[in-house]
Each structure stands twice: as C-alpha cells, then as structure tokens.
Amino acid sequence: MSAPLLAVDDLQKTFPAAGGAMVRAVNGVSFRLDAGETLALVGESGSGKTTIGRCVLGLLPITAGQITFRGHAIRGRASIREAWFRGRLQIVFQEPAEALDPRFTIGASIEEPLRALGLADRASRVEEAARRVGLSAASLDARPGELSAGTLQRAGIARAIASRPEIIVLDEPTSALDPTSRAEVVDLLQRLQAEMGTAYLFISHDLSTVHHLSDRIAVLYLGAIVEQGRGADVFGRSRHPYSLGLLQSVLLPDPGQPRGSALALQGEIPSPIDLPPGCFLASRCPFAEPRCRAERPLPLDLGGGHQVACFRQEHVLRETAVTDRFAAFQRHAERLLGQD
C-alpha cells in the first residue's frame, strides 16, 4: 500500500487555561487523507475540528502525536516554513470577507499569498485561478465590499488554489452562505477537485453538505473521533450513539420525514477542561452502562475502514433503525420538484 498523502497519528493538543488548568482540545486523533479525496471532520462546537485543521496547517504547535504530509512532519509554524511545503497546503475560511483585505482588489488578494511564497509567473496563476472559479475581470478589479458573499467565497477559493496545493483545509466554507450560493460553492469545489485532484480536509457542522461532498467522514466529540468511515457507512449504518444523535438532530425540509426522537441526546457537551474518565459521551448517552463511565472505549474496526469507539455498538445496532435521511430527502425532492 502506498503511503497516504496526510497521516495524523494520535494527535493531542492542549491549551493552557486560567488557574493552571488545561483545555484538552484534541485527545488522540488518528486519520488518513489520500490524494484527491475528501475527508470531512464533523462535530459541534468544542469538538476540536477547527483545532485539528489549524494543527494540520502548521498554525498551531502540536502537544503530542504526529502529523506527516508525504513523510514531512508538521509540528508547528517553524516546520511549515521548510521550502518543501511552499504552497502545498492551503485554507478556505468560513467568512470570505474576513479572509480578504478590504483595501485590496480581489485580484491583488489572490496574488498576495503567491508573492509571500515567492512563486513566479504570478499573473498567469491568478488568471488561471480566476478562470477556474468563474470570476470575471470586473470582479478581479472590485474590492470585497462591492461583491456578494457567494462571489467573495469564489475569490477565497481562487486564492487557495492559485498555488496549486495538494491539500486544502476547508474550514466551514459554506456555513455563512445562503442555500442557493451554498449549492453553487459546493458544485464549484467538486468540479475543482475533479479537475485538479486536490485533497480536501472539509471541516463542517453542516451534515447535509458533508454527505454530498465527502468520500469519508470522521465524527468528533470533545476532541476524539467517535466514528469514521465511508459516507455510506457513517451516515447509513451509524453505530455510535453520538453520530446517531447528531444525524437525528438534522432538520431536513420535509415534515413527512420526522426527525428521530429515539436518540435524543440529553444536556450539553461537558467542559474540555474537566473531561470525564470514561467515554466522553457517557453523561448524555441513553445506552451508557457502568463500564462506559469508567473506561474509555478504543476504536473498533468493523471492516472497510469503518471504525466505532463504543462499548455498546452492538446494542446500538439492535436498538436503532438507521436510514440515510439525506438520500431519502433527495429522492423526495426529485419527485416533488422534478415534474410540472
């Protein structure tokens, strides 16, 4: 088997908090990202997904574990300055308006990282990136304040692809957009991946978009992966109570498809300063038994790369009927809106 493009092994990241306490943001996370594929990191606030993205980009020093990109270690800012990394890793932010300097034209903003990386033939790279994302010459001359959120996100994507990266960290790239511009940006990201073979690490809490865009999905809770695997496994055959609770909380625009209530997660996410000794979900989980509160479950491989970290996964399988709700909604919408 060839080496993966990106390998993250037992990653840990802590931040100091007031009074000498530690915020344990990432607690032993391992995953692979292969060339040209999309891996989604999903979870709620405090799940550590954004911190993992920052560690992969070398923006944060890691506390323990290992991140390697084609065998080159990423441990923080110093490691990423190595010439080998130049332009190979990029990011698209949630708020395109914040990623673009309001005083610069869009064209200058796309060029700026190329200048910082010391890359040659900048004009032709900007032109190529703009053409790929469908930005007009007029948009390149405009300033951020003059353009819509959807067009700004196209510019944010152009800025990321201009250095022809191998990996792009997409940090909630569609969360600030309206549904119609969100659909356009998703189409664009898919087309660019097909054309350029870029791998995406797609950080999102929008499970509907994740379902559509991702090859594989890792579900995070309090800085640990509770379940990961192919989209069809994680969304269609979920075995972890948290993945199920998350999926059942999604409200799709079809009242005929009731949201599940069988697995309502109680209460809220515990503090990452004061993590429980056993499974992090035990306090909210309807299936928890004494062992779950004492011991932390390790990921169990169910085949085909589908991993679940739960002592009760067989019980969960017996007790819950999982269907792929996103696929069901797509069929419903096609029936409803496909004719007239």
């Binding site: 549904p179 625009p253 919408a333």
Partner: peptide
Amino acid sequence: TLLAAFAHSPALRARWT
C-alpha cells in the same frame, strides 16, 4: 429553488437554476 438547493441533486439544481 430554495428546496432544490437543500437536496444536493444535480438534476434539480440544473432544473431550478
């Protein structure tokens, strides 16, 4: 158009965009 945007269906997107 709003509902079609949620469905992530290429056929519907083409039809309503």
